[in-house]
């Protein structure tokens, strides 16, 4: 197989090829859409059954009722430092409240920042989308030509 100058073909071929690696923090992070990243909760549907907590192998997810017995207020807390991103909680949830996102850049400088309240996160996201929705409607109205 060996003959002089065989490397030349390979070397010349590599001149026209794109790099096999990516300069990650500077370049684009390409994550497949099916990648199991950080969990998000649809708190509206959560009934606080605790099946996610029961099946979590890393004891990373916790469901607690911060309200009263009559007026329930369930909060789902996720410890990102413990979470192994297996998404078994997602499979165990009968209401389909939990889903994964391709968000994998979750490192922080403080350990306490890694404990996230998924219910509060969902409420904040709802508030933001509620604020944006009227603005979008107004923009659509403005764009309509007056007859």
């Amino acid at each position: 197989m060996a003959y002089p100058g065989k490397i030349t073909k390979f070397a010349m071929g590599h001149l026209s090829k794109a790099p096999a690696t990516r300069a990650f923090p500077l370049g684009e992070l390409i994550i497949t859409p099916h990648f199991r990243g950080k969990l998000v909760l649809k708190a509206d549907d959560c009934i606080g059954c605790g099946l996610c907590e029961r099946d979590c192998p890393a004891y990373a997810i916790k469901v607690e009722n911060r309200g009263t017995k009559e007026n329930k207020d369930f909060h789902v807390t996720l410890n990102l430092a413990h979470c192994i991103f297996c998404c078994q909680c997602m499979d165990s949830c009968r209401k389909g409240c939990l889903s994964y996102t391709p968000n994998v850049q979750l490192a922080g400088f403080n350990k306490d920042d890694l404990i996230v309240d998924l219910t509060e996160e969902w409420k904040a996201a709802q508030a933001v989308s509620a604020e944006e929705a009227p603005a979008e409607e107004a923009a659509v109205d403005e764009a309509k030509p007056e007859e």
């Binding site: 096999a20 497949t32 990648f35 192994i84 297996c86 499979d91």
Partner: peptide, 27 residues
């Protein structure tokens, strides 16, 4: 890397694919 990309897409992770579940596969 080509194979790992396939595994990440099929399973959801590059290393711990998590495709297995008692009674079959998850995806």
């Amino acid at each position: 890397e080509l194979v790992l990309d396939l595994l990440a897409d099929l399973g959801g992770n590059r290393v711990n694919y998590g495709i297995n579940t008692p009674g079959g596969v998850r995806r």
